[in-house]
Design a protein around this nucleic acid. Sequence first.
DNA 1: TGGCGGTACTG
DNA 2: CAGTAC
DNA 3: GCCA
Length: 596
Amino acid sequence: MLLFQGQQFVILPNSEGSYLGYLTRLIEKNGGHLISSVEDETGSGLATIDSSTIVLLNSSFVDENFNLIQENFLLRELRPFNISLWNFIKENNLKCIDIKDISIFIKNKKFDLNLVQLVNIEGHSVFKLNDGVTTVQTIKSEGTNNSSDEKILESKSESESESESESESESESESESESESESESESESESESESESESETDIEIDVNRKTKGNNDRIVNPLAKLARKYKVEGDTFRARSYNLAILSIDKYTLPITSGIQAQKEIPNIGPSIAKKIQRILDTGTLPGLEQASEQFDSLQYFSTCHGVGSETAKRWNSLKLDSFKDVLEKFPNEFAVEWPILFGWSYYEDWQKKIPRSVCAKYLQIVEDELFLLDPDFKVELQGSFNRGLPECGDLDLLFYKPGCDDLNVLCRTIEEIAIRLYKKSFVKCFLQLTEQIEKVFGNQVRERLAKIRLTENKPKKFNLAPRIKKALLGVQLQEPISIEPHNEIVELKDNDKFMSLSNEDTSKYDYCRRMDFFICKWSELGSSRIHFTGSSEYNRWMRLKAIEKGMKMTQHGLFKDDRLLESFNEKKIFELLDIEYVEPQLRNQVNKRQKK
DNA sequence: TGGCGGTACTG
DNA sequence: CAGTAC
DNA sequence: GCCA
């Protein structure tokens, strides 16, 4: 008698991509029947599902207390026709388990649901915010079926798990006091954030800001200045300009004079006010045009991973205008910092945004490999994905293991995972070296060096880190993805194309992506999640709050006088800082109205 | 006038 | 230490 | 660059 004989399973959000191949084969080998996702829109596939079907949930949607998390993300990964499947599951109370728990049955050689913890999928919508308002914030990526989305999401959430119930309840108590303090601006109604979520661009990337509003002719020159200062390495000045721009965007009235702007808009001081007046008078700013040539040069170089403002300025002042130029005139510039070679090789790929629907595929691959290595380990997508953005610049993966604070185990694991995935050709390159990584990857570094004829100068002596707390990688899917990113990028000059490792076939979109592995101790899960979810602006703002209160906030926790106050419980950290807890989706920009 | 987030990795 | 990146 |  086979283990899963006669038992039906369905994998959510999907089992496609063959990355779950290992598990599906395992199940089928043991006599289980796997319902492939319902592939037609008629819903007829539902007929094959009955109340005894077991739902296998992708582990990234299950938290340590076996509650469903990130239901909105789950729904987004489901195809439109599978939304009804999800409805069916909820209505009929189908049993859900974490897909990783399949291993428990295998281990015990027994299929018995008592062996595992069922996942609680009721009443755990992330749309439940602290203020008790059910926020249906739909991210406007592919808006095919918003209506059905919302219907499901309105399921109210009274049954909270006890683990978070205390923090919930007390933040509720003070929520009403603040409701009137901020009247007009953006927060008013959530539905509105869907229609113009464009305003929530990251502070770094207002390059692609849309033209809107009267104040745009003022903002554009300022944005240019911000980018200019950024590539010049004057980050504080650049940041000031960006903050000013965000403030102008929030200011709904037309700007008629510099003085007015300085008086009424925050983050605008005498200098920017003067520039605004100049723009109002003449339509532009002096110096922008003639500076643009230098700007192009600096931008061209510093777009490459590993090249920052200082290197870019140095190369620019040496009158170099391409990487090849640098190579020919100053070959030693490359002899030392080999990661730059990969930045050069994937120059264009690494600028391409990743549609969030694709991100899940990348996660899946890592998850499957991690499961084989240690099924107790967890990995989560952080960064812009976690904040719900429709496109991500890179993928930030946070690894941890419940109960494990051992840095050696954690470091070793991400290193091993990365190496295994390199052998499977998913990982294309590493940006640091350890002894182990050098063994498999060293030759490719040497190959890149040989490509620019530097092999002789620097035989094969690399600095090897004893262990790595984070792994910076380039990764690539085997099968092309049929979704095209559409952001603008800085193009590699023809002279420099000979180093490119991008796929020649531009009809396929299997770009190389930047992926970062991070680890955190179990005891630091909360502060790490805050840190890696970002955004960077949000982190800055939060850490500033900590400073104001005489505390210090890092990815390792919240401290006062070097004493740890809290690092595990995310909500508690917010509480200690007197900040209202907000879901990751609302951390794309700083929310001016913190309460209490 | 000093401060601007705090940490990890490389050479 | 400076430089770069997260 | 702006702000405390």
